[in-house]
C-alpha cells in the first residue's frame, strides 16, 4: 500500500503546483508573466520535439522552427478571415501535427545520407526556405499575405468557449492567459508522456542505436531510412502542434516569428538542458524562455538602482548575458544542466 502511495503523492503534488502556478505568478507579478509562462510551455513542446531528432536520433537539425511555422500558418489559414475559413481547433491541431509530420519526412528523405555538419547546413536551408516562402507567397496568388502576416486569427476555443475571453468559474474570472496556460500544460504533459514512452521503447532504442553507430544499427536489422524518417516526422509533428497553439494564442502570425534565431534558440534549449534527457530538455526550455524575459524587465531597474541611470540598453544586455551563460554552461557543464546519467559519464570519461 505504502509503495503505491508514493508515486501518486508525487503526481498529486505536481498537479497542484501546476494548477496553482499561474495564480502565484499572476497575482505576484502580473498577468504579463503568465503570458511568459504560456510561451515557455510552447517552447518546451518545441524543445521536446527537437529532442527526438537531435537528442535521440542524433540528427542535427538547424531548421526545426520551420515545422512550428507550418503548424502556425496552417492554423492561421484555416481559422481566420484571410480565406474566410473558420475550422474548429480540434480539427486543425491534429491536422497541423500531420502536415508538419509530412514536411518532416519531406525534409528527411533527401538528407538521409547526411550527418553532422552537412545535415545541419541542409536543414538550416530548409528552415530559411520555408520562412522565405511564407514571406513571398502573397503574389501572384495571395496565400500567406506576405510580410504583413495574417491577423485576426480565431482564438483557440474548446467546446465553443474561446480561450481569449475571461471565463467565470466559481465566481472567479479567469483571464485568457490562464485558460491558455491550462491548455498548454495539458498538451505539454501529453507531449512529455509520448516522449517518455518513445524513449523507453523499441523505437527509442533504434533511434539511439543510429545515433551511436549507424553501420552497426543497420547490421542489427534496423531499417535506418524508415527509423530516421520516423524521428523527423515525430519531432516535426510536435512542432506543428505547438505552432497551431501559437497562432491561436497570438491571433496573429507573420514570417518574422520563424527566423533562424528561433531554431537556434530551440536547439540551445535542448543542448543546454541536456540532450536526449527529457527532464533536462524541459528545464532548458523553461529557463531559456523565462530568463530573457526576466532580464528584459529586470535589467533597467537594477541598473538604475546601482548606477542611478541605465548604462546598457536592456535589449543588448540580454543577448550579452545570454551568450555569456551559454559559454559558461558549455565550459562547466558540457553535457547540459541536467544531463542523463549516461551522457554525464560519457563526457567525464
Amino acid at each position: 500500500m505504502n509503495t503505491h502511495a508514493k508515486p501518486w503523492q508525487g503526481i498529486v503534488l505536481i498537479a497542484l503546483v501546476l494548477a496553482a502556478l499561474p495564480f502565484a505568478v499572476g497575482l505576484g507579478m502580473g498577468n504579463a508573466w503568465v503570458r511568459v509562462l504560456d510561451f515557455a510551455l510552447l517552447y518546451i513542446m518545441l524543445a521536446l520535439g527537437l529532442n527526438i531528432v537531435v537528442g535521440f536520433a542524433g540528427l542535427l537539425d538547424l531548421g526545426y522552427i520551420a515545422f512550428y511555422a507550418i503548424g502556425a500558418y496552417l492554423y492561421a489559414l484555416l481559422a481566420s478571415p484571410h480565406f474566410g475559413l473558420h475550422w474548429p481547433t480540434w480539427a486543425i491541431l491534429p491536422l497541423g501535427a500531420l502536415v508538419s509530420g509530412l514536411f518532416g519526412i519531406l525534409l528527411g528523405a533527401p538528407t538521409l545520407r547526411l550527418r553532422g555538419d552537412y545535415l545541419a547546413i541542409v536543414t538550416l536551408g530548409f528552415g530559411e526556405i520555408v520562412r522565405i516562402f511564407l514571406n513571398n507567397l502573397n503574389s501572384p496568388v495571395n496565400i500567406t499575405n506576405g510580410p504583413q502576416g495574417i491577423a485576426r486569427i480565431d482564438p483557440i476555443s474548446i467546446a465553443g468557449v474561446p480561450l481569449s475571453k475571461p471565463l467565470e468559474f466559481l465566481g472567479l474570472a479567469l483571464p485568457g492567459v490562464y485558460l491558455y496556460y491550462y491548455l498548454f500544460v495539458l498538451l505539454a504533459l501529453v507531449i512529455i508522456f509520448i516522449s517518455l514512452r518513445l524513449e523507453d521503447s523499441r523505437i527509442g532504442r533504434a533511434w539511439v542505436a543510429i545515433r551511436e553507430d549507424e553501420v552497426a544499427a543497420k547490421t542489427c536489422g534496423i531499417n535506418v531510412r524508415n527509423v530516421k524518417l520516423l524521428a523527423f516526422a515525430m519531432g516535426a509533428s510536435f512542432g506543428g502542434v505547438a505552432g497551431g497553439l501559437f497562432a491561436g494564442f497570438q491571433e496573429f502570425v507573420s514570417p518574422e516569428s520563424f527566423s533562424l534565431m528561433e531554431s537556434v534558440m530551440v536547439l540551445c534549449m535542448v543542448v543546454l538542458g541536456g540532450m536526449g534527457h527529457i527532464p533536462g530538455v524541459i528545464l532548458g526550455g523553461l529557463l531559456l524562455a523565462v530568463l530573457p524575459e526576466v532580464l528584459r524587465h529586470g535589467a533597467a531597474p537594477v541598473q538604475k538602482l546601482l548606477f542611478g541611470k541605465v548604462l546598457i540598453d536592456p535589449e543588448s544586455l540580454r543577448m550579452l548575458l545570454f551568450g555569456l551563460t551559454l559559454i559558461l554552461v558549455m565550459l562547466y557543464r558540457p553535457a547540459g544542466l541536467w544531463p542523463s546519467a549516461t551522457r554525464k559519464r560519457e563526457l567525464s570519461a
Partner: peptide, 27 residues
C-alpha cells in the same frame, strides 16, 4: 558497439527484428 548504451540495451537492440512494436504500441 553502441558505446553509450548499456550492455543490456545493446543486446536489446539486437532483438529489433524479432519484435514489432511501433510508435502507437510504444505510446
Amino acid at each position: 558497439l553502441f558505446a553509450n548504451m548499456t550492455a543490456l540495451e545493446n543486446v536489446m537492440v539486437g532483438r529489433h527484428l524479432k519484435s514489432r512494436a511501433g510508435v502507437i504500441g510504444a505510446v
